[in-house]
Design a protein around this nucleic acid. Structure first.
Lengths: 232, 232
DNA sequence: GTAAAATTAGACACCATTGTCTAAAACGTC
DNA sequence: GACGTTTTAGACAATGGTGTCTAATTTTAC
């Protein structure tokens, strides 16, 4: 097991068979950890769900803790990448703020909050955040803090452009996110993925209220249209 | 163990010694279950934390599941009672809505959301809600649904009184609650109890934005005072 | 086709936990 | 002080999961 192939060749070797199993194990482990929690998750169940023998799991990851760390790394980095990607879709111009903000809220909730990675991270942070302050802090930095900072900067730009009237940008960012989740919390709590209609409706409701509070209302146009409740 | 004492006498007997131990066990179990989750919680740790021998735990509760059920019952009924109590403090008159709503938000967050029962229920619902739909539904009925319904009715009254301008009362209720939590989520996620100042500030921020969106603004008085951010 | 590497099933020791049992001790009541 | 009840500490078997090992089988590279 030493120097049998060059690193490049081994990388090529690992590119399909091994790598596929690694990913399969990671995905299965994420699911099982999410379903049962770390302590109650059994390696046997993970192996079965990954369609892999238990020994193979131990071949790739020394022990349960190592596997858990790898899963956390995997999910976190994917979630960070997705958040970065979504943040890069900020509205550039100040025309049609309502539609732009709503579309952004939809993208955010769909790709970062309500998907399976979001669910995993929510459970992880709630359950282990106290036990592992470093984990909590790292998540906070790369997640909510980065998000609110970006939103805050966006709101500042829009305020300067005269499209919004905001005194505390940071507060407005937190409130925008809170409003965006108001209609979805129940669904995400159960881990269900909201339908496109629900996502759209929730975003509309949030943005309308947000703009009624912070819009640079010429006409203010309040209660422009009866809102459709998003929750059954 | 039959007819040794009258039920009344036995009740009297149990009123201090046994009952105290029962409560001690319940409290310890709630803490340990909350810290480690159901599967990872050990009866030994619960017994130790309750200052009671393990056998005593088994004397009072047949097995781990029974104990868990008892804890859930205990926490849920206490939380329901507290919510009922807080709901009975709704503002009666429509004068000074801002202060009244803020004070209500403070009471709600302090006694129902951010306390240890709230923390327990949050973890319980997130972790076991999918596995036990009945548990989830029961919580939803007695918790968020009752709360939003009551708030919705209050907003309807205030709208009729001309103090608010709301088209969708239910949506407004959900948004009010979402805004009330916007500044506290980070803290409650870690299980910390926010200070009175933080509770007050979070409620102020929420109510101010809420009224800017839904207030029957005569002067609308926007941006009346620079907001103090509640989050460090 | 062959050799190296990876995978598999199964057996295994080990450990923590659950729930039971027993005998001794503490408690409260009369 | 005597009695019944509750509590306690400790031993105990049973269970289930972890992590290791081995030998056989499959996959992959060349």
């Amino acid at each position: 097991m030493k120097k049998t192939t060059t690193p490049a060749a081994r990388a090529e070797t690992m590119s399909r068979g091994q790598c596929a199993k690694r990913l399969s194990i990671l995905e299965a482990a994420a699911n099982v950890f999410c379903r049962h929690g770390f302590a109650a998750a059994s390696i046997d169940e993970i192996a079965a769900e990954a369609c892999v023998s238990r020994q193979t799991v131990y071949n790739h990851y020394r022990d349960k803790d190592t596997l858990m760390m790898a899963v956390i790394d995997d999910v976190m980095s994917r979630a960070n990448g997705m958040l970065f990607s979504v943040l890069s879709t900020f509205p550039e111009k100040a025309d049609n703020i309502e539609d732009d903000l709503a579309a952004f809220a939809v993208r955010l909730n769909k790709n970062c909050v309500c998907n399976s990675d979001g669910k995993f991270i929510r459970k992880l942070v709630l359950n282990e955040g106290e036990r592992y302050p470093h984990l909590f802090e790292s998540w906070r930095q790369h997640g909510p803090l980065k998000l609110t900072n970006a939103l805050s900067a966006l709101f500042a730009r829009l305020s300067v452009a005269g499209a919004l009237k905001i005194d505390d940008f940071d507060l407005a960012a937190r409130q925008f996110l809170a409003l965006s989740n108001a209609d979805l919390q129940m669904l995400t709590l159960l881990g269900e993925m909201p339908s496109d209609e629900q996502l759209e409706s929730a975003a509309r409701n949030a943005v309308r209220t947000f703009l009624r509070a912070y819009g640079a209302g010429e006409g203010q146009k309040p209660l422009q249209q009866a809102a459709l409740s998003a929750i059954a």
